[in-house]
Design a protein around this nucleic acid. Structure first.
Lengths: 337, 337
DNA sequence: CTGAAAGCGCTAACAG
DNA sequence: CTGTTAGCGCTTTCAG
């Protein structure tokens, strides 16, 4: 294994010069830098991660806690994970994968052993049991999701409440008077997952404000469940003309079910969704949607973490990305009554 | 931070004794061990990962390379990832997440910096470009997937060829004479992904052996694509009575499409799938299937890696788990012609 | 069965 | 702008 002293000797400088040339933490003359870099390349030098971590008390590794519980949409989780890894790499960091199942012990372990120097936590509940730990841990952390009380934390997410409102307002503007929210699986609400709860809040508040008649329907992530909800809607809410879908897994089956029940989209029913853009775009009838910007959220989470790690600038407790609605083929003004 | 010398002092022993008590690498009297353990607990001691890695040249971290390319089924990837993390934790290892996009450079980086001490590689192609690197790297690695030439490697997977054969043999035994394979998205075959290719091999070979008329149909992972394939099958292969589905993403939409086209399962059409058991079980018509045992594959991959890391025992180049077919409601003997 | 002590490879004062 | 050097916290010989 080639080490820093080898490089130093080869370049005719001291080890510290090599170290500083690499880190940029003190000025190095252009000429020496060149020489050092050439030696590094020639010898194929790579600093030993453990040694570096020990000497600098920085591992350059982030932990990402991913949820694997009932009702979560796996592809969406994966998008976040990938965007976090990609963003982390841009900052020369790696990502350690932690499963939610390890729980608080897992957080403690990686923190106490200095395996990682920061945490990213997904699938946040309004009253998440991990919050006290995160607040007291000396490791910086960022939550993807906004709990009830973000005091002392750093959180980032799409503004799901505003997203819910935006969908309703759009439907209201199009003249729809009876609307429904088809939401995430029941288990997601039972544990008060932040993003799901906030969509309901926004949806309900906006509907009330606009004087719309509204109802909320959790839905399992299976086509069969989607079909049942569609039938139930038709049966129990015959005047329904507007739907908001916040459940990426069943968006397509649900649209199918509507069609099979004789409900044309958008002719009979206007549909808006809260989901990743590429999903909404690629349906047989492209769906008007508020995008879930996974890539941006992941990247911003990492950026916030880096800011905390470097003590650079202020980190707000809550960063909520404003929702952006894209009009597509699934919404239309309600036919005059 | 509490360190090993603190524990040693507290327990009235030397640091090396604490270290050995922890690692079990040399005999410690029962009494001392107790005392040491008590001190560890009282002080809340956790060995520093970096220091440990530096001194022992073992990081106790595995790298997992996950694919994110066109056509891969994200939930299945996630299952593997989770089972790998879970298995790794059982062996006191953590898992670093690497995206395929980082490519060979990523492998080099984590290997050369000693960030990880072993690799698990998913989404293997028959002639995977990473194989030469994996063979020369001094890090142990395990592939999930079987390339054309596993020489000098360690590979584990479900025996997909045998799985394809098993499905065909079952259909043949039930009297079906015209069958079709509905496979993964075209991109998966284009890059010669090992598991997909092997299913086709097995399917075709077994069909030929049994004198069945057979055809193969790649299919994108969208309900719309599933519908098109179903229609095409009905149009071009009217005598078809048996189908093998190797594409978890469209299994349910495909069954739906068959039904809407007036093809009853299993009345008119017998369906078998190669997919995770829980998917096959939970469909409106439970599907006869060969299980993809993600959890077992992940666990075995980690076990193999541990064996290589510990120099314990022999590691075979290829471990193929025998397919297991579970009969469910979707298959039935062909009505007498 | 236990201790003493020499590193592991790197960083960051400290010194010039 | 560069060099010297003292650790970072742990493992593992070497000695006993």
């Amino acid at each position: 294994m080639v080490k820093i002293t080898d490089v130093a000797r080869h370049a005719g400088v001291s080890p510290s010069t090599v170290s500083y040339a690499l880190s940029g933490k003190r000025p190095i003359s252009e000429e020496t830098r060149q020489r050092v870099n050439r030696s590094i390349k020639e010898l194929g030098y790579r600093p030993h991660a453990g040694a570096r971590a020990l000497a600098s008390s920085r591992s350059d590794v982030l932990a990402l806690v991913v949820p694997l519980r009932a009702g979560i949409d796996v592809p969406v989780v994966m998008r976040f994970a990938v965007s976090v890894v990609t963003a982390a790499r841009r900052h020369d960091h790696d990502v350690l994968l932690l499963t939610q199942e390890e729980g608080e012990d897992g957080l403690h372990r990686v923190a106490d052993t200095a395996l990682v120097d920061a945490l990213i936590v997904m699938d946040v509940q309004l009253d998440d049991p991990r919050l006290p730990l995160l607040r007291t841990l000396d490791l910086p952390s960022v939550l993807i999701g906004l709990p009830s009380d973000p005091a002392g934390l750093t959180c980032i997410d799409l503004d799901f409440k505003a997203a819910g409102e935006l969908c309703v307002e759009r439907l209201a503007a199009l003249g729809h008077r009876v609307i429904a929210l088809i939401g995430s699986p029941p288990a997601v609400y039972v544990r008060r997952t932040a993003f799901a709860q906030r969509v309901v809040q926004g949806f309900t508040a906006a509907a009330d404000r606009s004087g719309l008649s509204s109802s909320v329907h959790p839905c399992e992530a299976s086509p069969a469940a989607a079909r049942m909800v569609a039938e139930q809607l038709l049966r129990e809410h015959p005047a329904l003309t507007g739907v908001v879908v916040h459940n990426e897994a069943i968006l397509e089956p649900l649209m199918d079910a509507f069609e099979q029940l004789g409900l044309r989209v958008p002719g009979d029913l206007s549909v808006t969704a809260i989901c990743p853009d590429d999903l909404a775009e690629n349906l047989p009838v492209p769906v008007t949607s508020v995008a879930i910007p996974s890539a941006e959220v992941g990247a911003r989470a990492v950026d916030l973490l880096m800011r905390k790690l470097n003590g650079t600038g202020h980190t707000p407790e809550a960063t909520l990305l404003p929702p952006r609605l894209t009009e597509r083929a699934s919404t239309v003004a309600r036919a005059a009554p």
